[in-house]
Design a binder for these strands. Structure first.
Length: 590
RNA sequence: GGGGACGUGGUGUAGAGGCCUAACAUACCUGCCUGUCACGCAGGAGAUCGCGGGUUCGACUCCCGUCGUCCCCGCCA
């Protein structure tokens, strides 16, 4: 192998003003040969870029002989020099003004014809991409993602290091947690019948680290959950897991906002607006119909129950009469076509909404559709006032009646759907938001049991503490989600540091003292020895990189992801194991 | 666990009961070509239409099942 002197990036950045040719040796992969006979062009590509090589038979017959048998993706080294291309033969791209004139070309490895071409263009079949991931990762967009992800991790580490954080690893072999997501279990060979679990997150151990006095902990932690996959979910994902002692909510928010802003700025995505808007869970639900609002969409949901209090429109009157509400989503400027109205109505019904009315509000105070018949001038004015409209504003109003929370969620879906479907204008940019004060508990629809809404280690808000036993569903926690452009980046909370309070919260979930001791005894005991007030947050690194890179799929920002069926087409995982391995583990096969 | 979409040469697509002895583009192989850059030109090879069953005189096409991939709901403290 010829000793490499430059990367392609070095060669592209090399100043080329002077006449003297620059000697260099490049190593990389062959792409795009153009064999004109006694003149051959091809490109050599490495991780940093690609550059044209020109081989002239009359100037260098031996290099030409090698070049004529090169094929796509052969691995070569080229020793030669850099030369400006003749005038008029420049290409408009980095390094397009120059080319490599080889003295010698060595083939380091031949390559079979790849199943897809290595270009910016994405091969259609994702299974094929994953089967040949090493080829897929050669594609420049994927290289950019790998670099971006590295850069993001590096910036996070540097930032947190500057702020006094320690990165501490927590074990991959840990204790199963029967609640929450399904655990991946690992049989303990030395303890037949017992199992480790792979961590769903380092939650409990980072709390123990706070008791240990670490004060500021973080980890780029792998988290594993054996649940069904989605476009933004993998069996294993990476979290920026973080926990701090003695910090107020405001202090933590300020820290995370500065981290995000400097991170986005450092990776060239532009500095997001800060401070990030904050809204409570209840506000988010009533204004956007979701706990992860996309604030780029310039529309909100409005409660119009009052405005329709005396309506003669039967559907709405009945809804109000039976304790329901009327919620409206106003879509500014849109004059929906009949087809769009029908589609939207259909979408609402698919989402489980009934009693949908779509009307156009004109700037001349006109109203279209069914409402025209039932709306008095005063009612219309009341509605326009409630929507906060100026006299010249017009647009489409989507109204749904029914049980408040469920129609809010439907309208939240409509809000997303309509903007996507009709490509309505959004505010550009990164729109972060904090959503705070989530309920501590919620009711499991299937079993009717109380389950933690977030996790059972979040501190109830002081003003709700007295409801813990009497009306637990009303108890809010000092918890928060960080949301970006409608995507949940992560969540956190102030933790319970008082063992007795922790026991109360767990008892509400139907656990008796023995169970609490068996599962969480180690944590409660730790707090008995002086646990500081502490809080934390965990942010999905994959999702951050996904948004930064403009990818729409979490698999595209993970080097070796699983398919939605949880398989790895490259390695063939999961696979069967040897009978002997099972015997050693005292496990029976199927 | 439920719903939906897709599966045709290496790749991307067309074909929607008989026109199929399966088309097009690209990639691949051979030859020609000294300024190409999606090089061009000429020729060539390459597919039991995911798999299994059924309906039919006849199935790439219709039906059932199955496998795989993707998307959504459930699930994801």
């Amino acid at each position: 192998m010829l000793e490499r002197t430059h990367t392609v990036e070095d060669a592209i950045c090399e100043p080329m003003k002077e006449e003297t040719p620059r000697a260099l040796t490049l190593c990389g992969w062959v792409e795009r040969q153009r064999d004109l006979g006694s003149l051959i062009f091809f490109r050599i590509r490495d991780r940093w870029g690609s550059l044209q090589v020109k081989v002239d038979q009359t100037e260098n017959p031996s290099a030409h002989a090698v070049a004529s048998r090169l094929r796509a993706e052969y691995v070569i080294s080229v020793r030669g020099h850099l030369q400006l291309r003749p005038p008029g033969e420049h290409k408009d791209e980095p390094g397009g003004d120059r080319e490599v004139i080889p003295e010698e070309i060595q083939v380091l490895a031949e390559a079979r014809t790849p199943p897809f071409y290595i270009t910016d263009e994405e091969p259609g079949d994702e299974n094929l991409r994953l089967t040949y991931r090493y080829l897929d990762l050669r594609r420049p967009p994927m290289v950019r993602v790998l670099k971006l992800r590295h850069q993001v991790a590096l910036e996070i580490r540097n930032f947190l290091d500057r702020h006094g954080f320690l990165e501490i690893e927590t074990p991959l072999l840990t204790k199963p947690t029967p609640e929450g997501a399904r655990d991946f279990l690992v049989p303990a060979r030395m303890h037949p019948g017992k199992f480790y679990a792979l961590p769903q997150s380092p939650q409990l151990l980072k709390q123990v680290l706070m008791v240990a006095g670490v004060d500021r902990y973080f980890q780029l932690a792998r988290c594993l959950r054996d649940e069904d996959l989605r476009a933004n979910r993998q069996l294993e994902h990476t979290q920026l897991d973080l926990e701090v002692s003695f910090m107020s909510r405001d202090q933590l928010f300020a820290l995370i906002e500065e981290l995000m802003c400097s991170l986005f700025e450092q990776v060239g995505a532009g500095r997001p607006q800060s401070p990030f808007p904050r809204l409570t869970y209840q506000e988010a639900l009533s204004r956007f119909g979701t706990d992860k609002p996309d604030l780029r969409i310039p529309a909100e949901i409005h409660d119009l129950t009052e405005s329709f209090a005396h309506t003669e429109f039967r559907v709405f009157a009945d809804a109000i009469g039976s304790g329901g509400s009327i919620q409206g989503l106003f879509i500014p400027k849109l004059r929906a076509s009949r087809k769009q109205e029908e589609e939207t109505g259909k979408f609402v019904r698919q989402q489980g909404g009934a009693g949908v009315v779509i009307a156009h509000l004109g700037h001349d105070q006109s109203v279209s559709g069914v409402l025209k018949k039932f709306m008095h001038r005063e009612q219309l004015e009341a509605i326009r006032r409630e929507l906060g409209l100026d006299p010249e504003d017009e647009g489409t109003l989507v109204l749904i009646s029914g049980e408040r929370d469920s129609i809010l969620r439907v309208l939240g879906q409509v809000r997303l759907h309509v903007w996507e479907r009709y490509q309505l204008p959004r505010l550009s940019d990164w729109r972060f938001a904090w959503v705070t004060d989530f309920p501590l508990y919620e009711r499991d629809e299937a079993t009717g049991e109380l389950v933690p809404a977030h996790h059972p280690f979040s501190l109830p808000l002081p003003e709700d503490m007295h409801l813990l036993e009497t009306d637990p569903l009303k108890v809010r926690a000092d918890s928060y989600d960080l949301v970006l452009n409608g995507e949940e980046l992560g969540s956190g909370s102030h933790r319970i540091q008082d063992a007795e309070l922790q026991r109360r919260v767990l008892r509400n979930l139907g656990m008796n003292s023995d169970l609490i001791e068996a599962r969480f005894g180690f944590l409660l005991r730790a707090y008995d020895y002086g646990g500081p007030p502490h809080r934390g947050i965990a942010l999905g690194l994959d999702r951050i990189v996904m948004l930064l890179s403009g990818m729409h799929n979490i698999r595209d920002v993970i080097a070796f992801p699983k398919t939605t069926q949880g398989t790895c087409p490259l390695t063939g995982a999961p696979s069967e194991v040897d009978r002997r391995q099972l015997d050693e583990l005292k496990l029976r096969g199927l």
